[in-house]
Computed example of a mutant assay.
Amino acid sequence: MTTTPKETTGDEAASRFVERFAAEMTAAGMQRMASRVFAALLASETASMTSAELADQLRISPAAVSGAIRYLSQVGMVSRERDPGTRRERYVLHNELWYETFTRRDQTLTRWEKVLDEGAATLGTDSAAGRRIAETAEFFAFLHGEMAGIMDRWRAHKDAGAQEA
């Protein structure tokens, strides 16, 4: 397949974006290869790619793709689908990816808050450790309450945008 200069420039720009965003996610703590695969899926027109497509675009081995997909699947950011009529798997970003990711994070915060409350009660708030743990639980309770409001405002914002379109 021959590419025109515009396609090459677009491909190069997309590649630069993928690597830049992947570097940001890696700096935030995500595995490097998972960051690259996720960014490539995010930047793809269909939000889905096969293992071969990912390996080719990112210039990585199929084993590296497999490991990255395994991680991204475990954290609920990507799912696997079969290409109709083939045995190939296609890796797909979830719809409403960020909403779902932060909703799951909110559930994690709730679990942490519960454990921290129990820890504060166990250690007693008359000790420095107990007060520190109680304050951490209070922080997560605050964050949990704020997160619910943020998610509601996002949904309203998104719905308003859809009505304008």
Rank of each mutant, 00 (worst) to 15 (best):
E24Y: 11
M25N: 13
A27K: 10
G29H: 11
R32I: 14
R32E: 14
R32H: 14
R36D: 13
R36T: 14
L41S: 12
A43D: 09
A47K: 09
A47W: 11
S48Y: 07
S48K: 06
S48L: 04
M49V: 09
S51V: 01
S51E: 13
A52F: 01
E53V: 15
E53S: 10
L54Y: 04
A55W: 10
D56L: 15
L58M: 14
R59P: 11
I60Q: 04
I60S: 08
G67Q: 01
R70K: 09
R70M: 10
Y71G: 05
Y71I: 15
G76V: 05
S79Q: 13
S79F: 14
R80M: 13
P84H: 07
P84W: 08
G85Q: 04
G85K: 02
T86H: 01
R87F: 10
Y91M: 12
H94V: 15
H94T: 07
E96V: 13
W98H: 06
T101P: 05
F102L: 11
R104K: 10
D106E: 06
T108I: 14
R111F: 09
E113N: 06
E113C: 14
V115N: 08
L116N: 02
L116Y: 00
E118A: 08
A120L: 02
G124E: 00
D126A: 08
A129T: 05
G130E: 01
G130L: 07
I133S: 00
A134R: 02
F139M: 11
F139Q: 01
A141N: 03
A141G: 09
E146F: 08
E146P: 03
M147A: 04
M147L: 11
A148S: 12
A148K: 04
M151K: 06
K158W: 10
A160N: 02
G161N: 00
A162M: 09
E164H: 01
E164K: 01
